[in-house]
Design a binder for these strands. Structure first.
Length: 827
RNA sequence: GCCGGGGUGGCGGAAUUGGUAGACGCAAGGGACUUAAAAUCCCUCGGAGGUUUCCUCUGUGCGGGUUCGAGUCCCGCCCCCGGCACCA
């Protein structure tokens, strides 16, 4: 009798065979079209979670599908192995970060293998090994030589919990992206990468990203935040100081009734010098600065400021205006000083009201134009009034005229500003790539010579969780010789942000053991760009923007000629349970291992792709997975019961029977299903509907099987259908498909067989269903040959009993006819 | 507040170009098999109603509109999710 579906045995068997036969090893081959599929490489936290399983399953289906379609597929995997959790484990449990990380990787690797993903394991990379991070250092030095990596003292984001500096992109609503602690501001000297140099290209490059989800592009665009405006200087009365401001609304300049400086503005101190209550003012500024440094939020009605005691001259009105210092102007954006136009800016208005400063209206809504005020303040473009020569102009006209005037008079100029700031990469932590720089008292900041790379992490260090990096306390590491004068020198002890590692790892996969360069340019030329990149959208303004930046930098180094690394990015949705993301604290975590043990990898993969399209949220359902398990069991049993169909003597026989309806239906369904699944995977990435159609097809085959078996040609169709079914199912549930492929007498590997094609003739596209409506409501339908003449279709439609009933003997006023689709009778 | 994306049965979701709303699966209910249960198989399954093998009306967040025909397009609202948030 039939054998039970033993997924444990089957899955292990095929994983071993694929590994032994190197089924997924990728090699450059100029004859074949290449296809590079990539998932965001995982952080080795200890265990694979359902989010990984979903991400990797999506890409595994695409990879296997592309292999079967004749592509030379590169589908690599590796580890984002540097980072805080390893160091925290060291502090808490006394285990070395390296040991912790390598142990986690070993475990997670075995989990991935059990899921049967089609990785080329020979290309595995691990960023915490010197073989990898040496090239971080190499890239850093090249950037340093070109002024793209530089040191700067500035106000930086400090996470008191992680005891390290964070990049702006890593501060989410004032909190640390990793630990959620309130971020503080510190003044420190740090290493930065000049991403702002590429701001404009990062923006224009979005044009090449038509296959990105819109929201990811929008998030990046907002993050880069380009705004066009004007720089304008204000002369301080009775001194030769000028205050530089930036405004996007130079058209409102006649309404600029005061100036506001940020608390951190370098001129604050000088302006208040010698003024009334100078001491009080200094104390006030200090108090406010402290609040800001602790990351305290300032609400709308908490706008506060002080009058500096000085005035400046509005260069357009030539009137004196007061200079204030206030907590609502940011130092980090623009020039740290603004011209305040309370009549046309909501924030300036709030401030002016609070301190009874003058408000002067200079813009009125254009006649007849619809407009809306923000809290009673007109902030839109309009028509100028009270603006001297500019009266009557539109805002747009005034902006260009006024900029011309500024430039002629040397008062300022046109200016473009970005919200994006340079990327701070220094981290005061141990478990990261050492920054290859040496400080010498005599020679200053010096590069570590290329021949001395990599600068490796010392292994004998103490992890105590005290402030400062463990590297600082390692004499072995810090003490060194200056490469220029050979004198006593000190190494940089900051390590790199781990986003540095992930900014170029997709290049490394192309030649993972290359020893002279970060990667071999010819190999990268063959494989890149990545044809399909899959990962969570939470990295839209972190990893995805950094990686685009690095790609352009590496291009400018001459190592690649691509502008964009990921022309097609698919943002997969979250995996949730009971309405929220899976997390330990909520106790709603489903462990992939448990599911694989209970149902097998094929079922887990099938289910996680079945219940929602890839880009949407996926709600885990303990009962839902049972449905997929039942489906695979039904397939298994069906094959066991019909194996005799595949016996040799069956093949070359002639059909002795006449037309069989079942036979035709199943054959049609087979070709329709092949077409549907091909489109769903290859064009739409709708893996859930692909699975639905496979299930539908199987249900029909199963139902028709007894009848098909009664005729020879029926048996032939049944055999074809069963083979097609295995091929269609194989990217989703590769183990069971491969096993059944073998047990139906095939010597070749299913994984390397070709994707089934469909015959347009056999899809029976020649038969169409004509829908008949009366006054737009469905009243009947019938089958008709494609391209039946219009008159015949109409008269057939009118002859239907049901249709006649609704026409109530009336003459149709009009008959809408859509070829091969529909007849709508209007009465 | 600004910028994105959504709202379809009890649930996850289908409907690809304006043309049969609810595919596929889950849950639920009924039945078969069984001493019994599990497993499996079959049937029903948006709502209301009726003369109940079938038929009618109604139905895709709400209100309008365009159209022979709207889940799909347009206008106005409501709600949910995500991102940014004094960016001058």
């Amino acid at each position: 009798m039939s054998e039970k579906y033993d997924f444990r045995k089957i899955e292990k068997k095929w994983q071993d065979i694929w590994e032994k036969e190197k089924s997924f090893k990728a090699a450059e081959d100029a004859e074949k079209p290449k296809y590079y599929t990539l998932e965001m490489y995982p952080y080795p936290s200890g265990r694979i979670h359902m989010g990984h399983v979903r991400n990797f399953s999506i890409l595994d289906v695409i990879s296997r599908y592309k292999i079967m379609n004749g592509y030379n597929v590169l589908h690599p995997i590796g580890w984002d192995a540097f980072g805080m959790p390893a160091e925290n484990a060291a502090i808490k449990e006394g285990i070395h970060p390296r040991e912790w990380t390598l142990g986690n990787i070993a475990h997670m690797k075995s989990q991935l293998k059990r899921l049967g993903f089609s990785y080329d394991w020979s290309r595995e990379i691990n960023t915490c090994l010197p073989e990898y991070y040496k090239w971080n250092q190499w890239i850093f030095l090249k950037m340093f030589e070109r002024g793209l990596a530089f040191r700067k003292k500035s106000s930086v984001n400090w996470c008191p919990e992680c005891q390290t500096v964070l990049a702006n992109e890593q501060v989410i609503s004032g909190k640390c992206w990793r630990c959620d602690a309130q971020v503080e501001q510190k003044h420190m000297e740090q290493w930065f990468l000049r991403i702002t140099k590429y701001a404009d290209e990062l923006l224009t490059g979005h044009k090449q990203l038509s296959k990105w989800p819109q929201n990811a592009v929008t998030m990046q665009r907002n993050w880069i935040g380009k705004s066009k405006g004007a720089q304008l200087f204000f002369k301080v009365s009775g001194s030769d100081i000028s205050i530089e401001t930036f405004t996007t609304r130079i058209d409102t300049v006649y309404g600029a009734t005061f100036l506001v400086l940020s608390l951190e503005h370098p001129l604050c101190s000088e302006l208040i010098k010698g003024s009334e209550n100078e001491g009080d003012k200094r104390r006030w500024i200090e108090k406010q600065r402290n609040r800001q440094r602790l990351g305290e939020e300032v609400l709308d009605d908490e706008k506060e400021g002080i009058f500096s005691g000085k005035t400046a001259v509005n260069p357009f009105t030539n009137e004196p205006i007061q200079i204030w210092i206030a907590n609502y102007v940011l130092m980090e954006y623009g020039t740290g000083a603004i011209m305040a136009v309370p009549a046309h800016d909501e924030r300036d208005f709030q401030f002016a009201e609070k301190y009874s400063l003058p408000v002067k209206e200079v813009i009125v809504p254009a006649e007849g134009a619809q407009h809306c005020d923000t809290n009673g303040v007109f902030t839109e473009y309009g028509k100028l009034v009270n603006s001297g020569n500019y009266d009557g102009m539109t805002s747009q006209q005034a902006i260009s005229e006024m900029i011309k005037y500024l430039q002629n008079k040397g008062l300022g100029k046109e200016m473009v500003l970005y919200r994006l700031r340079d990327w701070g990469i220094s981290r005061q932590r141990y478990w990261g790539t050492p920054i290859p720089i040496i400080y010498c008292k005599k020679c200053g900041i010096t590069k570590v010579p290329y021949k001395d790379l990599p600068v490796t992490l010392p292994s004998e260090v103490e992890f105590k969780g005290e402030e400062g990096s463990p590297l600082e306390r390692s004499d072995e590491f810090v003490k060194t010789k200056c490469p220029l004068c050979n004198g006593e020198a000190r190494r940089e002890t900051d390590t790199m942000d781990t986003f540095f590692d992930s900014s170029w790892y997709y290049f490394r996969y192309c030649s993972p053991s290359e020893e002279n360069f970060p990667f071999k340019p010819e190999k990268a030329k063959y494989w890149l760009p990545v044809d399909l990149y899959v990962g969570g959208v939470e990295h839209a303004i972190l990893h995805l923007i950094y990686a685009r930046f690095f790609c352009k930098v590496l291009r400018d180094f001459g190592l690649t000629d691509i502008d964009e690394p990921f022309p097609h990015y698919l943002a997969q949705g979250m995996v949730t349970k009971d309405g929220s993301a899976m997390s330990k604290s909520r106790g709603n975590v489903v462990d992939p291992d448990d599911m694989v043990n209970k149902y097998g990898a094929d079922t887990v993969r099938l289910f996680i792709l079945f219940a929602a399209p890839p880009e949407k949220e996926f709600a885990w359902d303990d009962k839902g997975i049972e449905g997929c398990y039942r489906f695979l069991n039904r397939v298994w049993i069906f094959f066991q019961e019909n194996l005799e169909i595949f016996e040799k003597h069956e093949t070359a026989q002639i059909d002795g029977h006449g037309f069989s309806e079942e036979k035709g239906n199943v054959e049609t369904k087979m070709h329709q299903t092949i077409k549907k699944v091909t489109g769903d995977i290859g064009d739409r990435y709708h893996l859930n509907t692909a699975i639905s159609s496979i299930m539908e097809f199987f249900n029909e085959v199963k139902k028709a099987a007894p009848q098909l078996k009664s005729s020879l040609s029926g048996r032939k169709i049944l055999k074809q259908s069963m083979e097609a079914l295995l091929k269609l199912l194989s990217p989703f549930a590769p183990h069971i498909s491969e096993e059944l492929w073998e047990s139906t007498g095939h010597d070749s590997r299913l994984v390397l067989s070709s994707w089934p094609g469909y015959e347009p003739d056999l899809i029976r596209e020649d038969i169409v269903t004509i829908v008949v409506q009366v006054n737009g409501k469905l009243r009947g339908k019938f089958e008709s040959e494609r391209n039946t003449p219009e008159e015949d279709v109409k008269s057939h439609a009118l002859s239907l009993e049901h249709v006649k009933k609704y026409m109530r003997n009336q003459e149709p006023k009009k008959i809408i006819y859509i070829k091969n689709k529909l007849v709508n009778i209007v009465i």
